[in-house]
Design a protein around this nucleic acid. Structure first.
Lengths: 250, 250
DNA sequence: GCAGAACCTGACCAAAGCGTCAACTTTTTC
DNA sequence: GAAAAAGTTGACGCTTTGGTCAGGTTCTGC
């Protein structure tokens, strides 16, 4: 249950809203209070429901059903619908930092960037529902995004923008507006999760498989790396254009 | 009022749902029935409300308020909330075809692609609300996307994918998986409208101006063109990297 | 100038859904 | 083992809101 990790205090400064009990010290699941297990079940169910129906469309009754608890019990753990929603949103942000960590100034730009693309896409494949929830939230103007979250994301972006600029100064990549590059990356990598229906429609498939995400990561990396004038590492695992042509034509 | 053009039968095969009267022959606004004006006002208001609140969050009362009509009058023109919603969605698709038309196999790839990016971004800037409505619809799994719409979009994508392939065969661009390229383009160009909050947050501005969209278009074009191995036209209006560096650093 | 079509609208209904509550059981603590 | 804390739950209150309806007025064609 992915939510456990979240509850257990990954990026504690962003989890103020969490109602995780302070007396829980170990991660041993068997020692958890019933409440902790239930909270996690509720959040897991809520992620699905919010992703599918949006904030207003989500009904607490459905969240309760999916977590196999009576509705009143859900309200025992979370004061309001909004609390559940915000808890999930705040937790999500921290996860993206893991992908951003790939963009380390000390690394080779080629590896760092394609690593970022791969990790980000992989995360969005594994956590499609959260991704969509967040997308939905942002599309609606970010009503429930706290100042802290916004600041955190802004700072993270600015920090990594400096990494791009340092690479440029070192002659390792072309001069590219770093923020707009971020937007391109974010938009492209979120697409597969957030706009899955369109990706499926475009690719003409019923389901997006791991392979589709991998292909996407490759194509994005291929275009962005070359597009930014980043040289591939000699021993790099990235496929060369010639290999890809076969695939594209088939 | 943008909706007029829509009502007047742009891409008629996609406007089955429209209740536009067949007796209207001219586009002269003054000759329109009261009903046509009201329908347009309702749709315009609905676009805003749906974009802001999503399907479930949108209240007919608010749509009525914004169009300055009593709620019962809204129901005089549209049988249900869903009818209003679907009408807008179906109309939107046709508009994107205009951007796709830029990708003409006979044109120079550099001009065609950067033209597409520019037109698409410009459209999303001018029709932010529709874009968001559609994004919202897709994020929720495309519940209300008809088979016709899906087929239309799939066909349009496939057709333009062939354009990319023809360019590749002619040696005008690298071999790139055309569908994934489309996804990258779509994701990047929709971002500014759909995820405006994040774009603003990243750029550190209160409002996205025309200039931000233009910068975005430039950066995307810069990266994608070079990334796909497309040579710029000599007389092209695109800025060269050196010019952009100044901007990026400032 | 009239018949019928198009349009308008206040009042209402029924269903849905968020959140409450009070009485109850189980678990923990000491 | 008893008191306190944590957890459970059916029933219900109350607001919101999609949609209806009946009884109007205004417009249009002839």
């Amino acid at each position: 249950m992915a939510v456990f990790r979240l509850i257990m205090g990954f990026r504690p400064e962003l989890t103020k809203l969490m109602t995780a009990p302070s007396h829980v010290k170990s991660e041993d699941a068997s020692s958890l209070r019933v409440g902790d297990r239930n909270r996690a079940r509720i959040l897991d169910a809520a992620i699905e429901v919010f992703a599918l129906r949006g904030y207003d469309g989500a009904r607490i009754a459905e969240i309760a059903e999916r977590s196999q608890l009576p509705k009143a019990n859900v309200y025992y753990y979370f004061r309001t619908k909004r609390t559940i929603y915000q808890t999930i949103i705040e937790n999500l942000i921290g996860e993206w930092d893991a992908a951003l960590a790939q963009l380390d100034a000390a690394r080779n730009p080629s590896e760092a960037l394609s690593g970022y693309i791969r990790v980000k896409l992989e995360f969005s494949r594994k956590h499609t529902a959260q991704s969509r929830m967040f997308a939905n939230e942002v599309v609606h103007g970010g009503r429930f995004l706290s100042r802290a979250v916004r600041r955190h994301m802004h700072a993270a972006t600015a920090e990594k923008a400096k990494v791009f600029e340092s690479w440029t100064k070192a002659g390792l990549m072309d001069p590219v507006d770093p923020i707009h590059l971020f937007i391109l990356l974010w938009g492209a990598t979120q697409f597969y999760a957030d706009f899955g229906v369109m990706a499926k429609n475009g690719l003409g498939v019923k389901r997006l498989t791991r392979a589709h995400f991998a292909d996407g990561a490759e194509t994005i990396a291929q275009i962005v790396l070359k597009g930014c004038g980043i040289r591939l590492l000699a021993g790099s695992s990235e496929q060369r254009p010639a290999d890809r042509l076969v695939k594209a034509v088939c």
